[in-house]
């Protein structure tokens, strides 16, 4: 197991190098916007453009820039470790901004994940064990609605109803946990629920499908024949096998969400990683784009690793040696 984990961690480094080199090619070798020209202002002189290029470190050959970037990521830069550089737009270290924003995104992602698991799995189980009943059809119908409903629509409708009309929600924006726990909770509930609805619907449908298939397996029949209670059959034998794909999916979903739930963050004005990254792409703020890319790549690969390890626990058939 440990050898497997070490091997996978080394793969993280390889993935990181591949992802960053592709990002570098996209943003430096095939640029649509020259950040030096953009930031040199209106009617810049050649000297001004050169000065900006120098200040941004863009006057060095691309391979050198890339090598420096990688070096800083691993060994740190003047702003500490990991070295994520300096934002062109805000003239401040990317690291400080990143950690401020990733905290918001992590809260959003994990809070939503708890809700969608709490809703999606029970509904999936219920639909499976009461397959083809009214409960099943109603649950799956609602799930289909949420799968089909775009997050931005759900978000805006949620705001309209709970903030604008009913005044139950304090509206958009983010309040730090440390400033006021109740305000934090009040501001996060709606984004959590909106983001969770889409995923809960997916998970419910998936759990239902897996569960129906599992419950038809021979070992389930054997368990019943041996006289086990139905709840034991369902939760101990059926659910465990049905959950393995859920583990895979949640790992990937959480990894991706750490890169930012762009739409949810934008609709609810949460200053997270996602909308920051999107704005930075349009503004040509390359250090931010690179930083987010690197961290998301790490998050996704690490989540994959965690998923694989949990898999081994849940499914004894999986062996790593």
């Amino acid at each position: 197991m440990w050898r497997y984990i070490v091997r996978r961690l080394l793969w993280v480094v390889v993935v990181l190098l591949v992802v960053t080199s592709i990002t570098y090619i996209v943003f430096f070798v095939m640029p649509t916007t020259d950040p030096a020209v953009t930031f040199a202002g209106k009617n810049p002189t050649t000297e001004q453009i050169a000065e900006v290029r120098h200040q941004f470190g863009l006057d060095k050959p691309v391979p050198v820039q890339y090598a420096l970037f990688i070096k800083h990521v691993f060994l740190g830069d003047q702003y500490g470790w990991p070295g994520l550089g300096f934002s062109y737009s805000t003239r401040s270290p990317v690291k400080d901004q990143f950690f401020g924003r990733v905290l918001v995104t992590v809260q959003l992602a994990f809070g939503a994940a708890l809700i969608w698991l709490a809703i999606g799995i029970p509904i999936g189980i219920l639909s499976a064990i009461r397959s083809r009943t009214f409960t099943d059809r109603a649950s799956m119908g609602i799930a289909l609605f949420f799968v089909a409903a775009p997050v931005f629509w759900l978000g805006l409708m949620g705001l309209w109803l709970f903030w604008f009309k009913l005044r139950w929600s304090p509206g958009t924006g983010y309040v730090a946990w440390g400033d006021s726990f109740t305000d934090w909770l009040a501001h996060m509930i709606l984004p959590w629920v909106v983001l969770a609805m889409l995923y809960a619907a997916f998970y419910a449908r998936m759990v239902r499908g897996n569960m129906i298939e599992t419950m038809q397996q021979d070992y389930i029949r054997t368990a019943r024949v041996k006289g086990l209670s139905e709840s034991k059959v369902i939760f101990k034998h059926g659910l465990r096998a049905s959950l393995t794909p859920v583990v895979t999916l949640i790992g990937l979903d959480l990894g991706a969400l750490l890169g930012g739930a762009v739409i949810t963050e934008t609709v609810f004005n949460l200053q997270g990683v996602g909308q920051w990254a999107v704005n930075s792409v349009f503004q040509g703020d390359l250090p931010v784009v690179l930083a987010v890319t690197v961290v998301v790549a790490i998050a996704v690969t690490m989540m994959n690793l965690v998923v694989d390890i949990v898999y081994a626990y849940l499914d004894p058939r999986v062996r790593y040696n």
Binding site: P150, M157, W160, I263
Partner: peptide
């Protein structure tokens, strides 16, 4: 720069948001 899809949605829902106020 704005997200095009979001902008469209914003435009659609905006009327509703302000309608009763």
């Amino acid at each position: 720069v704005r997200l095009v899809g979001l902008a469209l949605a914003v435009a659609l829902v905006a009327a509703a948001c302000g309608g009763g106020n």
